[in-house]
Design a protein around this nucleic acid. Sequence first.
DNA 1: TAGTTGACCGGAA
DNA 2: ATTCCGGCCAACT
Length: 85
Amino acid sequence: MKSRFPDRVRDIVRKIKKGKTMTYGQVALAAGHPGAARAVGLVMKNNYDPTVPCHRVVRADGKIGDYNRGGEARKRKLLEEEGAL
DNA sequence: TAGTTGACCGGAA
DNA sequence: ATTCCGGCCAACT
C-alpha cells in the first residue's frame, strides 16, 4: 500500500465526525507523519475535494486557522453550524 | 540537487 | 495575553 501523504491526509480528514475537530498536528500524526502539520496544510490548500471536510481541521492553539474560501470567517461559521463550536 | 514557500507547532521574550 | 524565533515536513521552482 503506497498511499501518498496527501491521499492519507484526505482519508483521515474525511473520517472526522460531524461536530468534531482535529488539529493539523493530530491529522499529521494519524497519517503516520508526526510533526508534518505544515505539510497537512499544504495538502488542504491544494485539495478542493468537497468530500473532505477540511474546515474541521483547526490549529493546535485553538484558533480557527485559514481557509481556501472565505477565510477564517467561513470556516468558523461552518463549525458553528455543525456544532463543533 | 538545492533553495524557497506555506491553511503549522511549541517554546521563549 | 501577544509577539518573535526556530524547527518540522512535503510540494513547487
